[in-house]
């Protein structure tokens, strides 16, 4: 079992990415009861915006990051205005269908503009792995783990000890009561939706450094984020983040460990997330970390 520490570190890395990707989804679901299918596509679009300035135009890191941030904030605000807000209060089906179409629009526009081939953010330079006591880790991976910790800590601080966080929590518990007490639902909705998209885009850029970019990556990460959310219980932010780390752990252990001389091929790594969704839905539909019962 000398491979185990490396597997644990790898699962920490993928768990951090999933946590960044799914935190925004969980916040939006908790607030609006909207399943945003285009969430993974914000990752993709943000990463491509960054790629456009950093690699194709060869600008520096701060300029590219600012540009990607600007693009994502504008796109998220516009998407929320057009694709989510008119439908959020009507029926569950409508926002899901419209965000599905938004996701397709994102994916096809990026494939038209940037081509469907795989792109890499790290094509210009070489990354040396560092090794500590037999564990290999690249600087990018250290950044991933640390930034997940910092950003999730920041979210925790905002949600639990600022007045903004109190308003968000109030609206997710009962939006009528919250609005009656003078909390502006519209502002909070925009704020949460945009910051979720920005978090997702940041995760997308990290993925671009860690592996590579493809227009079709959006779907895969949306479903991964759904998996993390199902594991933690729909709309439960901390459950979702815990679910993201569990998902990373299960995925990496499933393909890394020999089962009596037989190990699963790496192609099945992604399928594990989906099988986990099905198992959790089958046996514990409330999620692993939700105590309260669902109505009806």
């Amino acid at each position: 079992m000398e491979i185990l520490p490396q597997l644990l570190v790898n699962s920490l890395i993928s768990g951090s990415i999933y946590a960044l990707a799914s935190a925004g989804l969980a916040l939006v679901y908790g607030l609006l009861r909207v399943l945003n299918f285009a969430h993974g596509h914000f990752m993709m679009v943000g990463a491509y915006a960054f790629y456009f300035l950093a690699v194709e135009q060869a600008y520096g890191l701060p300029a590219s990051a600012a540009f990607a941030l600007l693009v994502i904030v504008l796109l998220a605000a516009l998407s929320f205005k057009i694709f989510v807000e008119p439908f959020a209060s009507l029926s569950f089906f409508l926002p899901f269908v419209t965000t599905l179409s938004l996701a397709t629009i994102f994916e096809s526009s990026v494939s038209i503009i940037f081509d469907v081939n795989v792109k890499s953010l790290t094509s210009g330079f070489e990354i040396n792995s560092l090794s500590f006591a037999g564990i290999f880790i690249t600087p990018v991976q250290i950044v991933i783990i640390l930034s997940a910790l910092v950003l999730l800590g920041l979210i925790a601080f905002i949600i639990h000890s600022t007045s903004l966080g109190r308003r968000i929590r109030a609206l997710s518990q009962d939006d009528y009561a919250g609005q009656a007490l003078g909390v502006s639902k519209k502002k909070i909705n925009y704020l949460v939706f945009i910051s979720g998209a920005v978090l997702a885009a940041y995760a997308g850029i990290l993925i671009g450094y860690e592996t590579n970019l493809q227009p079709t990556m959006g779907n895969a990460y949306t479903i991964k984020a759904f998996a993390a959310m199902i594991l933690g219980g729909l709309g439960n932010l901390w459950g979702t983040i815990a679910g993201a780390y569990v998902l990373g752990l299960v995925e990496n252990l499933s393909i890394g460990i020999d089962f009596w001389g037989y190990s699963l091929p790496a192609g099945y790594k992604d399928a594990f997330a989906f099988v986990m969704i099905l198992l959790v839905l089958l046996f514990k539909p409330r999620g692993l970390f939700n105590k309260e019962a669902r109505e009806a």
């Binding site: 899901f96 759904f226 199902i230 729909l234 989906f274 099905l278 839905l281």
Partner: peptide, 17 residues
């Protein structure tokens, strides 16, 4: 056992499998 949003995610997971 699933309703609405859970159902959509469950079938999505099934199709991904």
């Amino acid at each position: 056992k699933l309703k609405e949003d859970y159902f959509a995610i469950g079938t999505l997971a099934f199709s991904s499998v």
